[in-house]
Simulated assay, not measured.
Amino acid sequence: MTAAFDILDLGLRPYREAWDVQKQHHERVVAGGKPALLLVEHPAVLTLGRKAREGENIIVTREYLAAQGIDVFEIERGGDVTYHGQGQLVAYAIFPVGRKIVDFLRLLEQATIQTLQTLGLPDARPNVGYAGVYVDGREVNGLLYDQKIASFGVAVKRHVALHGLALNVTTNLQHFELIVPCGLHQTQMTSVEREYELRGMNKTATMPEAKKAMIAAFEQVFAEYDWSIPEAVGLSRV
């Protein structure tokens, strides 16, 4: 049985280069080509979604970021500011969506949760009212912090999605201290690697294992997906 979408592993790519690849596949899918799931890691970079106000949730100067070799991009996805870096599995689902935006986001959540369950984190879950996937909260100095392990940000143009999700596997979590992730307070970023360590699990987080689990999850979750594109061409975003 032929897969409904292509899977392309882009390896480690600078953000701008991968952004261009996304746009190329988006144009192809809009024109009726086969959908694609792009898997990639980026060198350290910050991206500002449409809800971000310039610098509001970046807590260091642009000069400091430049000195650290961390670029900043303003992009068309939803959401606020987020960080990408090595050890983070980014999945760009260039899939037809039409007007089924909320359903599409729920499927992305489901695929991410299933990925994490396969990796041994059964408490992975959505957080009502917030985009992304979380694991059970953790108390720090008497305060309970949500533990966010995957972030979401999607744009839908001409009924086809761009961008997608970012799952922290072995990510350098200290880099999240440069920002207020997605503009959320009382939230800590975590990773598969960190959860293994804090839970005393005798496991090693690896990118190949995470990619394998995510591909299997996408194939299962999107097995019955409606891949058609509405005839009327419009513009919607989330």
Rank of each mutant, 00 (worst) to 15 (best):
T2P: 13
F5R: 11
D6Q: 10
L8M: 01
L8V: 15
L10T: 00
L10I: 01
G11L: 04
P14I: 02
E17M: 04
D20N: 06
Q22C: 01
Q22F: 08
Q22T: 05
Q22L: 08
K23E: 05
H25V: 05
E27T: 11
A31V: 08
G33S: 15
P35M: 13
A36D: 10
L38I: 01
L38W: 05
V40R: 11
H42M: 00
V45Q: 02
V45T: 06
L46D: 04
T47I: 10
T47Y: 08
L48I: 04
L48T: 02
R50Y: 15
R50W: 09
R53D: 10
E54I: 03
G55H: 11
V60R: 07
T61R: 06
L65I: 06
L65Q: 04
Q68T: 03
Q68F: 00
I70F: 02
E74A: 10
E76G: 13
G78R: 15
Q86Y: 02
F95D: 01
V97M: 00
G98F: 09
R99H: 10
I101E: 08
F104R: 00
F104Q: 00
R106P: 00
L107I: 03
L108H: 04
Q110A: 10
T112A: 10
I113Q: 07
Q117G: 14
T118C: 13
G120M: 08
G120C: 12
L121Q: 12
R125M: 06
N127W: 02
G129I: 05
G129Q: 04
G137W: 08
E139I: 12
N141P: 01
L143Q: 15
Y145L: 08
S151I: 11
F152G: 05
H159Y: 14
V160T: 11
G164L: 08
L165P: 02
N168R: 07
T171S: 06
N172D: 15
Q174N: 11
F176W: 08
P181L: 09
P181M: 05
L184G: 06
H185N: 09
H185A: 10
M189T: 03
T190I: 01
S191P: 01
V192T: 12
V192F: 11
E195H: 10
E197R: 14
E197D: 05
L198F: 07
R199S: 13
G200D: 10
G200I: 13
N202Y: 07
M207V: 09
P208S: 02
E209P: 02
E209C: 07
A210F: 14
A217T: 13
A217S: 15
A217H: 09
F218W: 15
E219S: 13
E219F: 02
S228H: 10
I229Y: 08
L235G: 07
R237L: 15
R237K: 09
V238T: 12
